[in-house]
């Protein structure tokens, strides 16, 4: 068994929290750059240039790209040959968040109870998805998720007879209903299949994949669906900041999973133009 000390995890998470919030991911930055050229609305181009300038400034000054530094979401892949020593892995991740948000001058955006709503003061607890995998590595993927876009996300249990057409309709409906609220141009994560919670997790996970990239052995229709949905969403007219234009989404990422004979769950997780993620392997 390979041993990993919790202190290593705390340090790694602290760094990830800061880096992800200061540095816009390369894929999103490049997408903004090309959108600056292709956007048809003059105001839209001006807004896109500002967003790019904002990302540049945040990186230079080591400040948050967006003040909504999010709820801290983690996808952890823990190799089954790894033994965590020195304490609890979950507590180590939360301690890393605590330090990263405090030392990085990031906003504390978490309330301890959804009804009583008292700020926890340190942006914990994080939302952590664990997966046990083969090997002796610990992979930590981090995605701070702002709620301007999270609030516009949706899930629907479609009927199998709704098919691909039903999926397209639901994704488009969700983006149109969101309008200017999620800070377009958005990135759209879609989870299709599984169960209710599996679809939601797939949609979130889809947002961690750099836009314009593919993964593994996917059914052929998935890449085509991503392309078609992106084109359709960019015809809604919503545009940068929702003020009108031809750049409403920068990317659509879809994840699929086997499902039940009776169901077709679809989850749409919308993310803003400041879609942030980072990962590290220990």
């Amino acid at each position: 068994m390979r041993e990993i000390h919790v202190d290593t995890v705390v340090n790694a998470v602290e760094k990830l929290c800061m880096q992800a919030n200061y540095r816009l991911c390369e894929d999103i930055y490049c997408a903004l750059e090309s959108a600056c050229e292709n956007e048809q609305s003059e105001l839209g181009r001006e807004i896109l240039r500002q967003l790019k300038g904002n990302a540049d400034l945040a990186r230079q000054k080591q400040m948050a790209i967006c003040q909504d530094t999010g709820m801290a979401v983690f996808f952890i892949e823990l190799g089954q040959e790894v033994r965590i020593v020195g304490g609890s892995l979950t507590e180590a991740i939360n301690e890393g968040v605590r330090r990263g948000y405090k030392n990085g001058y990031l906003r504390n955006s978490v309330v301890g109870d959804p009804i009583e709503r008292i700020n926890t003061g340190d942006n914990t607890p994080a939302v952590i998805h664990y997966e046990i995998v083969e090997g002796d590595r610990l992979k930590i993927s981090f995605a701070p998720k702002g709620f301007g876009s999270e609030n516009m996300s949706a899930l629907k249990m479609l009927k199998p007879s709704d098919g691909l057409g039903g999926v397209k309709k639901f994704v488009l409906e969700t983006v149109e209903k969101a309008g200017p609220n999620p800070c377009p141009p958005v990135v759209v994560g879609v989870g299709i299949g599984g169960t209710m919670e599996k679809a939601a997790i797939l949609a979130k996970k889809a947002l961690l994949r750099p836009i314009g990239t593919t993964v593994g052995n996917r059914p052929r229709y998935v890449a085509e669906l991503e392309k078609e949905l992106l084109e359709t969403i960019n015809k809604t007219g919503i545009g940068p900041a929702g003020l009108g234009g031809t750049t409403t989404a920068l990317g659509v990422n879809i994840e699929v999973f086997p499902t039940h004979i009776a169901g077709l769950p679809v989850a749409v997780n919308i993310s803003c133009h400041a879609t942030r993620h980072g990962e590290t392997v220990l």
Partner: peptide, 12 residues
């Protein structure tokens, strides 16, 4: 409307 997500620029 201020530009959503341009928090670093607006801070200036």
């Amino acid at each position: 409307g201020a530009i959503g997500g341009a928090g670093a620029l607006i801070a200036r």
